[in-house]
Design a protein around this nucleic acid. Sequence first.
DNA 1: TGTTAACACGAAACCGTTTTCGTTATATTT
DNA 2: AAATATAACGAAAACGGTTTCGTGTTAACA
Lengths: 339, 339
Amino acid sequence: MKAKITLKDIARELEVSISTVSKALKNSEEISRDTKERVQAFAKLYNYKPNNIAISLKNKRTKNIGVVIPDIVHHFFTTVIRGIEKYANARGYNVIVCLSEESFDKEVINMEMLANGSIDGFIMSLSSETQEKSDYNHLKEVTEQGIPVVLFDRITNEVDCDKVIIDDELGAYQATNKFIDQGKKKIALITTDDYLSVSKARTKGYRKALEESNLGIDESMILKMPSMEMDEMAIKTFLNEKEPDAVLCVNEIFAVYSMRLVQEKGLKIPEDIAFIGFTDGVLSKYANPSLTVVAQHGEKMGEVSAKMLIDKVESEAEEETYQTKILEPTLVIRDSIAH
Amino acid sequence: MKAKITLKDIARELEVSISTVSKALKNSEEISRDTKERVQAFAKLYNYKPNNIAISLKNKRTKNIGVVIPDIVHHFFTTVIRGIEKYANARGYNVIVCLSEESFDKEVINMEMLANGSIDGFIMSLSSETQEKSDYNHLKEVTEQGIPVVLFDRITNEVDCDKVIIDDELGAYQATNKFIDQGKKKIALITTDDYLSVSKARTKGYRKALEESNLGIDESMILKMPSMEMDEMAIKTFLNEKEPDAVLCVNEIFAVYSMRLVQEKGLKIPEDIAFIGFTDGVLSKYANPSLTVVAQHGEKMGEVSAKMLIDKVESEAEEETYQTKILEPTLVIRDSIAH
DNA sequence: TGTTAACACGAAACCGTTTTCGTTATATTT
DNA sequence: AAATATAACGAAAACGGTTTCGTGTTAACA
């Protein structure tokens, strides 16, 4: 076991001072060509690499970014992480992932853990519990300490920071209009409770499209699930009673499960009933029939978030100016609607 | 913006020395009750939290663990990360995630980035390119430096370290036997090239089961995909020509896609043709019909890996003894086979 | 020959902790 | 009253770097 070599080791071995070694390795003009060559050769031979922690302490920069998300076993979040990781890595940053598991307390604990020097900034999406409680003090504390924060997807207006979202309202609006254009008359919405910022926006888009059409809104055609867990019975009853000819779902799972239910009843998709979901994951692609979805471009979102954060981290200026980037959703047409 | 407060700040404010503050906060017996109370009250008031980086430098312990995996957009890896994160967090560790994207070079770069003090140990699964090249010098260098490594799922015997795998051979063996027991005669295997350790083991289990039966092995019933990308045409041709009555697939996607193909031809699942896949992800659960799979228990695997790593990190002893934990796979029966 | 500039290098502070080892007072013992 | 013990605290080194500011040597110049 050969332990890592330090500047001190090199200095002792070559009988020069630590400062000389440090400068020589940085190719400083102060050091003679001769000494530089000796030091560099020695360093290369023993595979010297500066200790990241020491540099972090000196620079007060860790080159780590903290990502706090509710869940990692959701395709959307996974793609966001990938986008963050790719971009951050390219700029020399590492990504520390923490899961809040939709819990307010865990979100707070995770942030506290990281906020004491471990990271240069946060990228996060709020837990459902946090959105439900509307308690954002942990976020405010962090921003007040001067740690930059980028909020994505599940955001709040109560915190001053950069934000990245997709235009959920527009996505739902376009999807609903697609149904209307295709002559659908009984358009249902399966969503979750409104405290989730995204569900709220999607519901709004759905309503807007119906209001603008001559169909109008039938409140009973909206099914609100109390949580994100799927209540299979609720969906079954809803579909049987309401007999919609088109269904917009706020995620893939609601949609794919619903499709199976109506297929078992002998209905034809998309002739008798059409479906559009949110999130362009594996499920949509390989479902039978494949599911038309509003794609959220998670990877792009991750990239954009990471860029915003790192730019802020590396900017000396202490501008207190924050922006919200709104990404355009796109409708990925597959076999669950006519085309 | 109120900047973080340091020991030095408290010391100056209270007109004591830094060492006194440090000891007072640790409730040292050396310090008088009176001083301790003053210091602690002041620290609480200004919400003092020790700087993690400084502590890391002092202790030569970061309480970070590095996770290097090929891809995060695969359900299995995602569940492993969740298992790691949960367990590590409970023991006060953070998780730095790096993606190799199946590239040898990225794997090397990521490890080098982290190996200079950023982490206390690695948990990793090899990229396909690494397994293909059989070049493990980056792993050996790290272990020689005394940094503990735990390899999971995609492992190699050429590196001395702890390992966690599921018994892929057993899983495939049991799945194949299930087909045999149900009277299937033409049992196909759709897999990837053998350089992936898991595919190799699964193929072995498939062969073993067939050899032990009176069916014997028909090499043409094995379809090897050159990469993990799905070659839709190859699968289609294979299924049409070979007309198997049962198919074992090394992942979900191959299976779900194959199911759709044979359904389009009018075959009934599982009567005409049955399917079993690997990985118990969303796809299997919501496919139509739902897919029977060999569950890999990713979360458990992550937990076990994290426990092994942290135990080693925290053990003072420098025992050079490594173990390989083999987790039992379980068959999750769903509608793609008779039951 | 004395002054000065350039060169090559080292000492030391600093980042924020922890910890060992003094060093004072004050209290106790003989 | 002298010796010793104890309580309460501070100085300083250490972790591994970076960086500022000397400092000594040599060469060039007046």
